[in-house]
Design a protein around this nucleic acid. Structure first.
Lengths: 248, 248
DNA sequence: ATCGACTGGATACAACGTACACACTGGCGC
DNA sequence: GCGCCAGTGTGTACGTTGTATCCAGTCGAT
């Protein structure tokens, strides 16, 4: 990450990214249509969606935008900032409805939407740093805090609740996405095909005899291919736990 | 991305290219001491621990091992497999004590150990694919299933419980590690210094007026620098939720 | 002693992120 | 009108990365 300050020559060790979001607000002094942060983000997200995050290359992005390889560097200080921009762009499309049905419905809805977002853009799990301070990402804790405000919880407890849910969602979805990604770039269409592809490794591991309980699971489970059930079951556990633990 | 595969297109002639883990079992026909999977993993982990995952380069690794850049490729099919090897190596050091105090104590202990492991090797969050089928990583669900076996839960429920806890731990620790990593490579020693470093960005974001609830949190919270409290509070919530939800 | 599998070394290449210097553009003060 | 200059986009180039490929040495079994 290198420092790039547009306005003044105030050379210092301060955060360069702040200028990214500020620049995003006021479009430009002399507006061009060829390249904008929005167009850059859009193109990069499109590439990541169709070809994966690794395909998002400064050169590949430039080709998609019809400009020279270095052109995007006028808007983004480097690849890290590009990915931050992409993540913020995707979070910007997250529906943040405000239901009045209480904290639980609100948090459940948020969690479900977050999962859907990450499944629609599987690269987000790798791209979005948890707690990244970008406008649209910060909107998530903001809405959560607002939803939790009705009870007289103190700030630390509110944060603990948010982090518990956010942690569960992030980790749970990361698992799901990792498996989905494995399937996708191995061209395994359904669960059976996946198991067939994983069979050699599985056979070896089970052959060691170290995993009797896991082997039993493999034989008895019937919802192995129902990630939504797993996610929502776990989510309801977490919400139950919060309700019980804090008496709300 | 990962797993074993024959480097060339025409695969499994007579020999189905034993997986990395099978090769690890039978040491070698003609044992050398210069290079072994164990030594490779050890060196790579040491580099990642001290200089970060990005510093783990095939060349850097070779230098650390005192061999030529391509030498490690005799033991590892590529960088993906190297990282898989590193992850398995670290998981191998995870203490898997078997307390007889019931599922809750067992799962809580496992979660705490997993957090400690990820904090000791922050790069693990990026390196270890959830549900990766490596011997030492598979030992985690194995032990969990064994701990949960005492109640007559069906296989799907058992997995749901495991995934709920594992998801929470993974996501929660990922958040914590991301912030710790940010702090480390910015040389922010304590929480105050971190807030000072983040101040410009924060000031801008709060200046937009979009985040009143978050602003209030920032003003009122007193445990912002106590990640262990956050982790364990959330963990107890999750465990409470499981106990409530499944009546165990 | 000989063989053949195994190990490590040397060289090479395409692709990546990005530094740097240049050429163009269009709205501003004159 | 005219020039100016900050802001945009281009072209070229460099260092680093993962890894394919070919080569030479080594050692146990024959």
């Amino acid at each position: 990450m290198s420092t790039q300050q547009a306005p003044c020559g105030d050379e210092d060790r301060d955060r360069p990214q702040a200028s990214l979001w500020e620049r995003l607000d006021r479009p430009a002094p002399a507006p061009r249509t060829t390249l904008t942060p929005h167009r850059i983000a859009e193109a990069a997200v499109a590439i990541a969606d169709t070809e994966g995050l690794d395909a998002v290359t400064m050169r590949r992005l430039a080709t998609a935008l019809g400009v020279a390889p270095m052109a995007a560097y006028r808007y983004v200080s480097g690849k890290d900032e590009l990915i931050e921009l992409m993540a913020d762009f995707v979070y910007g499309q997250l529906p943040l409805d405000a239901p009045a049905d209480g904290w639980r419905a609100a948090m459940r809805s948020l969690a479900v939407h977050l999962r859907a977002m990450n499944l629609a853009h599987p690269w987000m799990v790798r791209a979005a740093t948890p707690f990244a301070l970008t406008p649209n990402q910060l909107a998530v804790p903001e809405r959560s805090f607002a939803a939790l405000a009705e009870h007289g919880l103190d700030a630390d407890t509110t944060m603990a609740i948010f982090r518990t849910i956010a942690g569960y969602v992030h980790g749970s979805v990361a698992t799901e996405v990792a498996l989905a990604a494995l399937r996708r770039d191995r061209d395994w269409s359904d669960g059976d095909e996946t198991r067939a592809g994983l069979a050699p490794r599985m056979t070896y591991l089970m052959g060691t005899g170290r995993y009797p309980a896991y082997r039993q699971y493999l034989q008895q489970a019937t919802r192995k291919d129902d990630p939504a059930w797993h996610f929502e079951t776990g989510l309801d556990c977490v919400l139950d736990g919060i309700a019980t633990h804090f008496g709300i």
